[in-house]
Simulated scan of single mutants.
Amino acid sequence: MNKTMKKMMVAAVSMAMLAGCSNSNSGGKGTVTTDGSTSMEKVIGALGEAYQQETGVGFTYNPTGSGSGIKAVQEGRCDIGLSSRALKDEEKESGLTETVLAYDGIAIIVNPNNTVEDLSLETIAKIYTGEIKNWSEIGGKDGEIVLIGREAGSGTRDGFESITDTEEKCQYRQELTSTGDVITTVSQNENAIGYASVASVKDTVKAVKVDGVSPTEETIKDGSYVVQRPFVLVTKTDGKLSDAANKFFEYVTSADACDIITASGVVPAYKEGK
């Protein structure tokens, strides 16, 4: 019930915040509907609000997870899907197109009381596959490591497991359905470790370095922070967006959106020459 209410509240806030009258730039009234990645909540919310201010067109965001967002586009239940992973070949073959909006780091997070500050990618993989079971094995305090991750279908989970080469090998204690749930759970357990979008990390948890590199905008942009993935807009390859949705798509992938995307804690894709 709490998760359902949370989703309803996010959608309601988006509608209240972003519904309005069109002006000369809107090209007509309408509503843009988006669905998908919970990791993209901050950036897509900021872009939606800015778009409303420019056009007066309504905007909704349904935070269901990447897999559900992709399915929503396939089934015609939203204009634009939001995925925090690249589309798979079979998804592209089914008639979907991806457009990279931004690049986001996946932070490896621990409780603030954890003394561990730096982990290698190899060590992270060994932790999540159960080869390393106690923090004392890697310089921390004695305590059984509690593995927190995302549910199957999550773009964050897919990105994390692909980068660490741990697909179908992770021995999760808990598989949670949102970025916020992962952060909250790790913040409440001194022996927990999890992963979450860098843009969503709060001071209630600590992001450790990976191979000596902290997850920042600069290290994500230059590629030195290796645990990163794309934020993707998903549309139908042969489908035609509504006028409102098309203008929104053009807006968020233009230079006008650069500062908004950056302020949301992720790196605009076009800065990378995409």
Score class of each variant (00 low, 15 high):
Lys3Asp: 15
Gly20Ala: 08
Gln228Glu: 08
Leu96Gln: 05
Phe231Tyr: 11
Thr34Trp: 03
Glu54Trp: 07
Thr216Cys: 10
Asp158Pro: 03
Lys247Tyr: 01
Leu176Thr: 00
Arg85Trp: 07
Gln52Glu: 08
Gly67Leu: 09
Ile183Gln: 03
Asn191Tyr: 08
Ala263Gln: 13
Ile109Phe: 05
Gly153Leu: 11
Ala19Ile: 02
Asp118Arg: 05
Gly28Ala: 13
Lys202Phe: 05
Glu93Cys: 07
Ala19Thr: 12
Met8Thr: 07
Ala263Glu: 12
Ala11Pro: 00
Ala125Val: 06
Asp104Trp: 04
Ala263Ile: 10
Pro112Lys: 13
Gly153Met: 12
Ala16His: 05
Thr156Val: 09
Ser24Ile: 10
Gly143Ile: 11
Val208Lys: 05
Phe248Glu: 07
Val73Asp: 01
Leu47Val: 00
Gly95Arg: 08
Thr31Cys: 14
Val201Gln: 01
Tyr195Thr: 01
Pro63Phe: 02
Gly95Thr: 03
Ile44Ala: 00
Asp259Cys: 09
Ser154Glu: 04
Gly95Cys: 00
Arg157Thr: 05
Gly130Leu: 14
Thr184Ser: 10
Gly212Glu: 14
Gln52Ile: 04
Gln74Cys: 06
Gly56Val: 09
Gly58Gln: 12
Thr99Pro: 00
Gly81Ser: 10
Gly27Leu: 12
Lys7Ser: 12
Val186Phe: 04
Leu233Gly: 00
Met5Asp: 14
Asp222Met: 01
Gln52Trp: 09
Asp222Ile: 00
Lys126Cys: 06
Gly159Phe: 01
Val10Met: 15
Ile220Ser: 02
Tyr61Ala: 02
Asn23Tyr: 11
Ala12Phe: 09
Gly180Val: 06
Ile138Tyr: 00
Asn113Tyr: 09
Asn111Phe: 05
Thr60Phe: 12
Val100Thr: 13
Glu151Gly: 10
Asp243Ile: 11
Val227Glu: 00
Asn191Arg: 06
Ile183Leu: 14
Ala107Cys: 12
Ser66Cys: 01
Gly239Thr: 03
Val232Cys: 14
Ser14Tyr: 07
Val210Ile: 12
Val234Pro: 01
Ile148Ala: 04
Ala72Asp: 05
Val205Met: 08
Ala19Cys: 09
Thr177His: 15
Arg229Gln: 14
Ile106Lys: 03
Ser22Ala: 10
Leu18Arg: 12
Gly76His: 12
Ala107Gln: 05
Val198Glu: 08
Lys6Gly: 07
Asn134Thr: 11
Ala263Cys: 10
Asp203Phe: 00
Thr184Asp: 12
Ala199Tyr: 01
Met40Asp: 09
Glu41Gly: 06
Thr156Cys: 01
Arg157Tyr: 06
Thr156Tyr: 00
Glu161Tyr: 08
Thr204Pro: 03
Gly155Ser: 04
Val10Glu: 11
Val182Leu: 04
Val13Tyr: 13
Gly273His: 04
Val100Pro: 01
Thr64Gln: 04
Val234Phe: 03
Ser178Tyr: 04
Leu121Val: 08
Glu49Phe: 13
Gly149His: 13
Thr237Gln: 06
Lys71Ile: 12
Glu218Asp: 15
Tyr225Phe: 14
Gly265His: 06
Ala86Glu: 11
Val234Ile: 10
Ile145Arg: 04
Lys206Asn: 07
Glu54Leu: 15
Asn2Ser: 15
Phe160Ile: 06
Glu75Ala: 13
Arg173Pro: 02
Glu93His: 06
Thr164Gln: 05
Gly139Lys: 01
Glu90Pro: 01
Leu47Cys: 00
